[in-house]
Amino acid sequence: MEDTVTAQGWILVCELKDIVPNTGVCALIDEGQVAIFRVGEREVYALDNYDPNANASVLSRGLIGTVGGRLVVASPLYKQHFDLRTGECLQAPEHSVRAWQVKLQDECILLGPPLQ
């Protein structure tokens, strides 16, 4: 699928059905790699794909879950947890990543700029 820049500066990265519920995928954009997660049927979140603990681009392949009420993804390499809403690394805050703006529109997933 071709990247489509929408009027608001959001990038269309894929359709909702391209992501198996409760898993992630990785999108390639000009700035690099962004991991996009589908939680349940219709919630979506996005983080940098690069795991600074492991120096590898793998976060999209982690398991999704909750830890103490926080929605997280566990890195597939060394299992640190990253908050899906903020990108904070629970075990090593100095290795936190950026969270990106992401939304669902007409069954498509649109990626905005990083939060804050």
């Binding site: 492991a54 793998v58 392949r61 597939p76 390499l77």
Partner: peptide, 22 residues
């Protein structure tokens, strides 16, 4: 299969062992 896929650890999800560089 659909109902089980999201439960699998990365290794099982891709039926291969992940290495340090991904």
């Amino acid at each position: 299969q659909k109902e089980h896929a999201s439960l699998q650890d990365s290794n099982d999800y891709f039926l291969a062992n992940i290495q340090k560089d991904g």
